[in-house]
Simulated assay, not measured.
Amino acid sequence: MNDGDVVLLENTRYRAEETKNGEAFSKDLALICDVFVNDAFGTAHRAHCSNVGVTQYVEASVVGYLMQKEIDFLGNAVNTPIRPFVAILGGSKVSSKISVIDNLLDKVDTLIIGGGMSYTFMKALGEEVGKSLLEEDYIDYANKMMEKAKSKGVTMLIPVDTVVAKEFSNDVPYHTVGRGGIAADEQGLDIGEETRKLYSDAIMSAKTVVWNGPMGVFEMPNFAKGTIAVAEALASIDATTIIGGGDSAAAVNQLGFGDKMTHISTGGGASLEFLEGKELPGVVAA
């Protein structure tokens, strides 16, 4: 190679050894460089040859500018936030955010719950959720988290009304019901108008906000209003607003609010594990 040349390699995931973090392939990767720069936050939660193994066999390894930005924003938001600190968790499942909820309850002032995971919390409160997404194995966990929030003095917000329909489709009739009003043949697909106002009001007073997971089925226009309301609230405040990758990043970009956010993480799984308080192998190795 000459000065200024760049070598583009094929995706290392095509190699079976990559995900096993084996010595041989790690050494092969190290042979082609003197300095290893890791700027792939999206894979930082994995210990693979191309982000962890290679660092053991090069003269120097460092994080890149993007990786440093992710560490700075997510790290500062969770560990040294400017208060009030509000976290918004949505998406489909409680099970995918167990450790995140538990960790954030030790740090936030307000925790907002939305999306499919909210129905498990509603069920834990003894409310009917019809055909809504429900993880019955996590009802006890939801109760424990609500008890923990109370003991920590954290405000935990759960939807007070829900947009429901009888089918999972944008083209079916829908209406809004209050807490406990979901019929047996209906399913919740978005937060209702009262909840949108409740959540927006909570966001307005925040100085640091971390958001991971949409409030409803934002891919369907009829059920995107909750996610839009949260995005609009975040876009309007003078605060540090951090979007935790994955569906949240897709939502704010798709809805046109991306340039209004302080930071949009490039790693869905990595940002979740960061919010859990875990050390990421790719960050530690670099």
Rank of each mutant, 00 (worst) to 15 (best):
L275D: 05
A231L: 00
G153T: 09
T195Y: 10
A270W: 07
R179Q: 13
H45A: 07
S265Q: 06
A44Q: 01
V164F: 00
S92D: 10
E127S: 12
A30V: 06
F25D: 05
K152F: 09
F218V: 05
V209N: 06
I71F: 01
D34G: 09
Q68E: 15
A286P: 03
S271L: 10
I112G: 05
G244Y: 05
K97M: 10
L89W: 09
I32Y: 11
L9S: 13
S99H: 15
T43E: 03
K20C: 10
L255H: 11
Q254A: 15
N76Y: 07
A285W: 10
E194N: 14
F85D: 12
E10R: 10
I242Y: 01
P214L: 02
A60H: 14
W211F: 01
S205D: 14
L105N: 08
A285G: 08
P221D: 13
K69V: 12
Y138M: 02
P281D: 09
I113Y: 06
D28L: 15
A233S: 08
I237H: 03
K93A: 12
K131Q: 12
T262L: 13
T43D: 06
N143C: 12
V58P: 15
K197I: 13
K225Q: 15
F274M: 15
V86C: 00
S132D: 09
T120D: 13
G115Q: 08
D106I: 05
K27H: 03
K69F: 08
V86A: 03
E194A: 15
F41E: 02
V108Y: 08
L272A: 01
P281V: 03
E232H: 02
T176S: 11
V283E: 08
V172Q: 03
V100N: 06
E219F: 04
A40T: 04
E276C: 05
C33H: 07
K27Y: 01
D140T: 15
F274D: 07
D161M: 08
A251C: 09
M156F: 09
A40R: 11
T120H: 01
K131G: 03
A206K: 10
T12W: 07
K166E: 15
N253S: 15
A124H: 02
Y199P: 00
L74Y: 06
S26G: 04
E17L: 07
